[in-house]
Design a protein around this nucleic acid. Structure first.
Length: 626
DNA sequence: ATAGGGTTAG
């Protein structure tokens, strides 16, 4: 009993002296203190536990784990205090940063069996789930609550509407609209705004306008949400008219309009609004930066970034990814290193930067740094998508498998986005059956998924599967892009189907696509392997864009296969001019000379090109043989 | 509690 009082007193003093946000040292001390008592609390009595639960969480700012909740729950049961159960769920849900399936499942199961569950408790949990992006769960909970005969509340409704807008799930939202009338809770501004926002987010501006017009006392949020709807539907003109009608514009209104112009590439209008707006905040500056990044004006973007009086994490991240899009890895890394308080999204931007610019090793290094610095936070779906891509580029299936088990461990569910990354990984590493399995399990097969699978079949000796998938994709009205064609042409190439490949290559223009150097490279390879060297050479000469090393390299390889000296020399010369790393090409050319017994040329080449030892190049044992 | 700015797969 004494201990109980002691805990109470100590704890109260902790709670009264709420940590000041600015004084981090004090806050940390207090938090540790609170945690200490929290542990004691579990051991003492559930009434204390209950008090600690609500107050410790305030002090600790999110730390209740499922295991701790289970301990507390056990105390609650033992002491027959079941009217505390939903309180526990609320605390558990409120204290989470990331919702793992375990937590979701556990929270739901307590809620279902709690004796004190009422509309209010359910609503709290629903709201929490909605705030953390658990939209499917939100809707499921809404239905479960309804089935228990509990009436919805204004804030369970507004949260569920938010979820329906995000999933998006139109019929559900409409049925909630009906429920709103049935339970007569349309009077709540939150519900009205939620409804109007739901329709606006789904692009049904007519319905949104109808709800909007019925709101008797419109606040600025209603106006802004409508504005966002018009902007989302791409109707800039309509949006501008609406914007001009807003009686009391706030910063959000201005920012929305600015980013609308910025997204459509009209930076002049964006800039003029930016100058005219009365008070700018972070988002105003950030919208300008991302607008300039989007239209490729990285220097102007950077000047805005540098001119900002204060930057937040989003400014830094936008700028890092801006440099990344231009392939300027150094600038990106410099900014990343300068960034004062990196969060997971900043790491994601840097990892994606390396992964997308063919530096997979560096991507993994940054990932490892994130894992080591546990305070920053856990990797999320975006981190892992990029990392899987990096593994795939390295062909590192072991690390990839580790990633998969890691995802299970920290409770990240494999969505279509991640599954597509894994398809690519398994396909590139030769585990095509696994890739197929994931592909069939996709909720929605989109362009990226098809492209990954087509390429996977192409490089795994299943050209006919690739062709089938390509047709299936066209039947599903998905238009192929340049990357899809890389995949399908690779398939034709591996199958040695020359005419079909050529036809497919010509098909590209029908989709409004201009073949890139990579596509030419594949066709050159295809023709070249078949011995049609002159045709391949003519194709290169007809290219409207400059051929890169891959194209000339393909020709050179074909010349090696068919021992053609003249074209081989031409191709090799181009390769030498284009790339610093000449050893491989030199070895190929030398092989051609050697096959033709032109030993003097071999020696001359050896002198003129400073190549690496032949052991680096497969199938080049010629060096020692003469 | 409703609104705005960023980071993910081929």
């Amino acid at each position: 009993m004494r201990l109980e009082i002691q805990v109470r007193n100590n704890f109260k003093s902790t709670f009264i002296e709420k940590p000041q946000r600015k004084d981090t040292t004090l806050a940390i001390v207090l938090r540790q203190d609170a945690f200490h008592h929290f542990k004691k609390g579990i051991a003492v009595l559930s009434s204390v536990v209950c008090m600690l639960l609500s107050q410790v969480n305030t002090a600790l700012n999110k730390c209740l784990t499922v295991n701790q909740a289970k301990q507390v729950h056990a105390q609650i049961i033992v002491n027959n205090l079941r009217d505390l159960e939903t309180h526990l769920v609320r605390q558990l849900v409120l204290s989470q940063r990331n919702f793992t399936p375990t937590i979701v499942y556990y929270a739901q199961s307590i809620l279902h069996h709690a004796q004190d569950s009422d509309s209010f408790s359910w609503s709290c949990v629903i709201r929490s789930f909605a705030q953390h992006g658990q939209f499917k769960e939100v809707f499921a909970l809404h239905v479960q609550m309804h089935n228990l005969g509990l009436p919805p509340t204004s804030f369970s409704i507004s949260s569920t509407l938010r979820a329906c807008a995000r999933i998006p799930y139109k019929t559900a939202g409409v049925s909630i609209h009906a429920q709103v009338h049935k339970y007569d809770i349309l009077q709540s501004v939150y519900v009205q705004t939620g409804l109007q926002d739901f329709y606006a987010k789904l692009g049904d501006m007519k319905a949104a306008k109808k709800v909007f017009d019925e709101i008797s006392e419109k606040n600025v949020v209603s106006w802004n949400s409508m504005l966002a709807g018009y902007l989302k539907s791409g109707d800039l003109y309509m949006a501008r008219q609406f914007f001009d009608e807003i009686p009391f514009k706030d910063t959000v209104s201005w920012n929305s309009m600015i980013s609308g112009y910025a997204r459509s590439g009209d930076m002049n209008m964006a800039l003029s609004l930016f100058h005219h707006m009365p008070a700018k905040n972070f988002a105003s500056w950030n919208a300008m930066i991302s607008g300039y990044v989007e239209c490729g004006k990285i220097d102007i973007a950077r000047s805005f970034f540098d001119a900002m009086p204060q930057k937040n994490n989003i400014s830094w991240i936008t700028m890092i990814s801006g440099h990344s899009k231009c392939g300027d890895l150094d600038s990106a890394k410099i900014l990343f290193d300068l960034m004062p308080e990196k969060d997971v999204a900043a790491f994601n931007a840097m990892i994606a930067c390396y992964a997308q610019n063919s530096h997979p090793k560096e991507a993994i290094d940054v990932f490892k740094e994130l894992l080591e610095r546990k305070l920053i936070g856990q990797p999320d779906k975006m981190t892992l998508s990029s990392i899987i891509s990096a593994c795939s580029q390295l062909g590192d299936l072991d690390f990839g498998s580790w990633i998969e088990s890691y995802m299970k461990r920290i409770g990240i569910e494999v969505d279509d986005h991640l599954a597509t990354a894994l398809i690519d990984l398994y396909a590139k590493c030769g585990t095509i059956e696994k890739a197929y399995g994931l592909f069939h399990g996709l909720a929605k097969k989109d362009l990226v998924a098809y492209s990954a699978m087509i390429l996977g079949c192409g490089i795994n000796g299943k050209p006919h599967d690739a062709i089938m998938l390509f047709e299936e994709m066209l039947n599903a009205n998905i238009s192929p892009n340049l990357i899809t064609f890389t995949g399908i042409l690779t398939a034709y190439n591996h199958a040695g189907l020359i005419e079909e490949g050529y036809q497919c290559f010509n098909l590209m223009s029908k989709f409004g696509l201009v073949p890139g150097a990579d596509h030419y490279g594949i066709i050159v390879d295809l023709l070249g392997r078949a011995g049609r060297l002159d045709e391949a050479y003519d194709l290169i000469k007809s290219m409207p864009i400059a051929p890169h090393c891959g194209v000339w390299g393909a020709l050179l390889l074909a010349c090696r296969l068919h021992n053609n000296v003249e074209l081989g020399e031409v191709a090799a010369q181009h390769c030498f001019n284009l790339e610093a790393e000449k050893a491989g090409y030199a070895a190929l050319l030398a092989n051609i000379y050697a096959s033709n017994e032109r030993w003097d040329d071999v020696k001359r080449l050896r002198k003129s090109v400073n190549y690496l030892p032949a052991s680096k190049i497969p199938g080049s044992s010629w060096v020692e043989s003469n």
